[in-house]
Nucleic acid binder design. Structure first.
Lengths: 192, 192, 192, 192
DNA sequence: GATGAATGAGCATTCATTCAT
DNA sequence: CATGAATGAATGCTCATTCAT
């Protein structure tokens, strides 16, 4: 068991190193040698855990994405009202994005560059289904505007990525009240 | 004058080639040699017009950004009411983003990766001032929610970048009515 | 004894794996890891039986060569007439080369590339002595042309390596009559 | 013209360097860096003249092979009698193989290892056609044994490769008389 | 201005070999 | 005996940039 943890440690160290370096310098300015050094292993060791550089970053993307999804729906139940459910999810996501800055920044970079192959990106999208179901319910009940999921997403969740940018560059940090007000903007955008 | 236009032609050809290639393959998968080939010049010629690769992409960023800004405020006057003014700007931007796909895509990629130095990015932000002024007026008149400019931007303009993604990948194309409805979402998000 | 056989099994498995892989991909395209995998052992295990890669291939060379020599002189006795003796040896070698394709191919590759050190190669040549003795006798008796052993070898035995190539690449398979006719060519080349 | 010669010089220097190094150390023990150094250019320069390492060695193979073929049929005409024609070609080849040692050695190594792809090898075989035609004529006239071309080749031309080995390793150098006697062996092998 | 030949620095990846278990 | 995780050293290849013409 100790052994397994140690192995897992190296894999995790490599993923963490990649996260940090890709965030700071981008995919192609992050040599494998630097990843190895930061993770405290020899370059060749990376290839014991990942097929190649692309595989390493793909795996990182998927694992971060999964972590994100898990947080997004923590405490969520379909028994909640549309508004309560949406509020829960929105705050979950907002809290994740505003606290897990490194992870969020990485996902944003992946989603907006040819760094990740389309195929992998699509795989990372599956997890949002509960939110889409919630929106469908809201549209049926006449509570939410009859817009496509893409538009709903664009005006409620996607804006949070932008606010992260501020947070990260220390331009502005959202207070709890501001977060509340911001939620109101998101909700007003899509509610009937 | 003819000669100057010809020279300018090469510069433009280089910028266009860069736009296309960086969009399709990313900054670091776009060798100077390919840019030169697509522009129909020799690699060394690039260095007659730009200092180096970074300079080339910086200049491209700034010029695209300026073009974008010009479109954003076309027909705008401070005499317009807050809502009318905002509507005009919003549709200008929406139309730009949904039609000038290559340019928009490029800007999105730049804004979400370490490809462009912070300094340059900041320089590209100056042009939005009229919109910020408009929002200030709206807040003063009690028409617009008293949120920071960042939040207002995040929930009205920034979402359009996401919708572009759909357009580009042929997932969904916005009809004129949908665009109207989408504007309503943006306006509802920030109006009192 | 059983245990020793088992150990010996692993050694043999390694030699066989090496033979196959070097034949198909060449010495330098045959990683130790693949040899180990094909032999069903761990890479490190190779070093229990052989000093290093070069040693492994040297040993293989010598053992194959010895096997070849044993076949070459099977049933041979110095009591036979020069022609009968030569015929026996020639057919022995021909049959070996045309049936033990893997082994022959390996030897050919070794003998025509810097894969094997000269020193080892020389060691593998000792075994042909009876054939050289036979030729000496033939020359003394005026039955065989007074050519150097090298030339005699070049025009009788060496050609068989070429015919193997055909066999291996399925270009042409020698029938029994053709083999007889081919022997005649070899004999005519060196007989007075 | 001077310029073109200079360019051609580098290509030739690279081919020569490759010939020498591959002969001495084998394909896979010949790094591009050493080829470059011996040719007096930077490693990257190789890629201006050849696509990659395999292409470099393929091109070398084909050019050497062509040179060899040209020598083989120098002075040959179909008007010659079968024996005279064969004699001419045989001596041409013998002289080439015994003097152009580096080239011959390289060809031998290529022909007996997986270094060269089959496809390329086949391309290098085209040139021998006149010899095959000559043999056909000889068979028709009842002068040459009715063996397949492969066998005829194996017992007349192929042995010369073996003799080269001696020459190269300074074991034995053929005198002119020995060469004559050796030719007799070759001719005896295939004549009726 | 324009070129293309040339290159130095860098990088992903492989592999023979070792060593703790 | 046997292993497999780990690695240092090497290598093929790319590319931004320069410079003589």
């Amino acid at each position: 068991m100790i052994k397994k943890e140690k192995i897992s440690d190296k894999r995790t160290a490599l993923l963490n190193a990649t996260l940090t370096l890709v965030n700071n310098h981008g995919f192609h300015n992050t040599p494998m040698s630097k990843i190895a050094k930061l993770a405290g292993v020899a370059p060749a060791t990376i290839y014991l855990y990942f097929e190649n550089k692309q595989d390493l970053v793909n795996k990182l993307y998927l694992e971060v994405k999964e972590d994100f999804s898990n947080c997004a729906f923590e405490g969520y139940s379909e028994d909640l009202s549309v508004k309560k459910g949406f509020e829960l999810i929105w705050f979950n996501i907002a809290n994740y994005k505003l606290s897990q800055i490194k992870e969020t920044n990485f996902l944003t970079q992946c989603d907006n560059s040819p760094m990740i192959e389309e195929e992998i990106r699509v795989e990372g999208l599956k997890h949002l289904q509960p939110l889409l179901n919630l929106w469908q319910r809201g549209k049926n009940e006449g509570i939410i505007k009859p817009l496509t999921d893409y538009v709903l997403y664009a005006f409620t969740i996607y804006p949070l990525s932008f606010l992260l940018g501020m947070q990260e560059r220390d331009i502005h940090t959202l207070s709890e009240t501001e977060k509340q007000e911001t939620f109101k903007a998101a909700w007003d955008a899509i509610r009937m």
